[in-house]
Simulated scan of single mutants.
Amino acid sequence: MQRVIAGIAAATVIMSVTASPAHAVPAAHVVAADPVTALKRQFVAGIGVRFTDVSTLIEFVGNTSFLKRTGSFQFGPAGMVASDVTATLNDEAIPRIPISLVGMLRSKDRTIRIGTTSYYSGGPWAAPKGKTWLKHPHGMSAGWGGWCSQLVNVAEAATLKALITRGKRTGRTYAGAISFGALEKVSPWLRNATMVKMSADTKAAVLRFRLTVGADQLPQRLVTDYPASTHGGVAAGEEGRRISVETNYTGWGNRVNIKAPPASEVAVIKRARLG
C-alpha cells in the first residue's frame, strides 16, 4: 500500500512540473528587469509612444515657459524609425527670451522625420507657392524647435542606457548629469538636433537629468536642464540662465503610423549642414 501511495505522489509531482509551463505568464506581460530591456521590447514594427513637453527659461527674476511640443515616435525591430513633432511657440514670452534662443522659431511648426529624411511645415523656411512641406534628405530631428526643447531622447536605447548608467537610482527615479559631448556620441537625435556643429564649449557643458520610469520600467517623465549659453552668446549678468525641459510619455505599445506627406505637397531643398 505504501508503494502505491508513493507512486501516486511521484506521478503527481511529475505532472505538476511538466504542466507548469502552460501557466507561465506571457512574455509580453513580464515586467523587464531594467528600463533598457523594457524599451527594446517595444521595438516592434508599427508600435510607438507619444509625448508632450514644455521648455522653460530659468533665470534669477523668474521662469518663462516659451515652447510646447506634442509628438510621437514610431519603432521598428532595430529601434526608432520615424517621428512626428509639432512645436508651438508662446508668442507672449518672446520679449523675455534671448534672440539667440528663439531667433529662428515661428509660432508653430511641424517636423516629420522618416529615417534621416525630414519634412518641415512652418518654421523659418517658407515652402514655395502651392506646396506645404519642405523635404531635406538629411534634416534636423525636430525642426528648429528641436534645439530649444528636449535634447535627450529616451526612445533611443543607447541614450537611455547612458542615463541609467550615470544616474543615481532612488525608487523608480534616476538622477544624474551627462555632458553634451558624451550624449552626442550615443544619440543620433542630438547629433541631428541642429544644422550647426557643436562647439567645444557646448560639448563640455553639462546637462542634468531626472528620469522616472513606471512599474513596467518604461520612461514616464524626464526633466532636463542645461546652461542657456549652449544656445548662443550670453550677455553680462545672464550667465546663470538655464533651459529646463519637462517631457511626459504616454501610450507605450500603442499603434503609431507615421507617413511622409503627399509628394504633391512637398518641395525639396538642398542645403548642406552648417558649421
Rank of each mutant, 00 (worst) to 15 (best):
Thr116Ser: 13
Gly76Pro: 06
His138Val: 13
Lys168Gly: 10
Tyr174Thr: 04
Ser121Asn: 15
Lys129Asp: 15
Thr159Cys: 00
Thr165Gln: 13
Thr170His: 11
Trp125Asp: 14
Gly76Asp: 11
Gly76Gln: 06
Asn90Gly: 07
Thr170Leu: 08
Arg172Thr: 12
Phe66Thr: 01
Val61Asn: 12
Val154Gly: 01
Tyr120Lys: 00
Thr173Ile: 04
Asp84Ala: 09
Phe66Gly: 06
Pro124Gln: 02
Val49Gln: 07
His138Glu: 14
Ala78Tyr: 15
Leu67Thr: 00
Thr88Glu: 15
Gln74Cys: 05
Ile112Gly: 05
Thr52Ala: 10
Gly79Tyr: 11
Asn63Glu: 15
Gly48Arg: 05
Leu163Glu: 02
Ser121Phe: 07
Val54Tyr: 05
Cys148Asp: 13
Glu92Arg: 07
Ile178Cys: 02
Ser72Asn: 10
Ser55Ile: 01
Ser55Gly: 07
Arg69His: 11
Asp84Asn: 15
Gly71Met: 08
Gly79Phe: 07
Thr64Val: 10
Ile178His: 00
Gly103Val: 00
Leu105Cys: 04
Met140Glu: 11
Trp147Tyr: 11
Met140Cys: 11
Leu163Asn: 03
Ala93Pro: 05
Leu151Glu: 02
Phe66Leu: 06
Pro95Val: 05
Trp144Phe: 12
Asn90Glu: 15
Asn63Met: 13
Ala127Pro: 00
Val102Ile: 10
Cys148Glu: 14
Pro124Lys: 01
Leu67Asp: 08
Val152Asp: 03
Asn153Gly: 07
Gly79Ile: 07
Tyr174Ala: 08
Ile97Arg: 01
Ile58Thr: 10
Lys68Met: 07
Arg69Asp: 03
Arg106Cys: 08
Leu163Tyr: 02
Val61Tyr: 14
Gly115Arg: 06
Thr64Lys: 09
Ile94Met: 09
Leu163Ala: 03
Phe180Trp: 10
Trp147Thr: 06
Pro77Asp: 13
Leu101Ala: 08
Gly143Ala: 03
Val154Tyr: 00
Leu101Gln: 09
His138Ala: 12
Pro95Asp: 10
Gly146Thr: 00
Thr173His: 08
Trp125Cys: 03
Thr86Met: 12
Ala162Leu: 13
Gly176Met: 06
Thr173Asp: 05
Lys129Pro: 08
Met80Asp: 09
Ile99Thr: 12
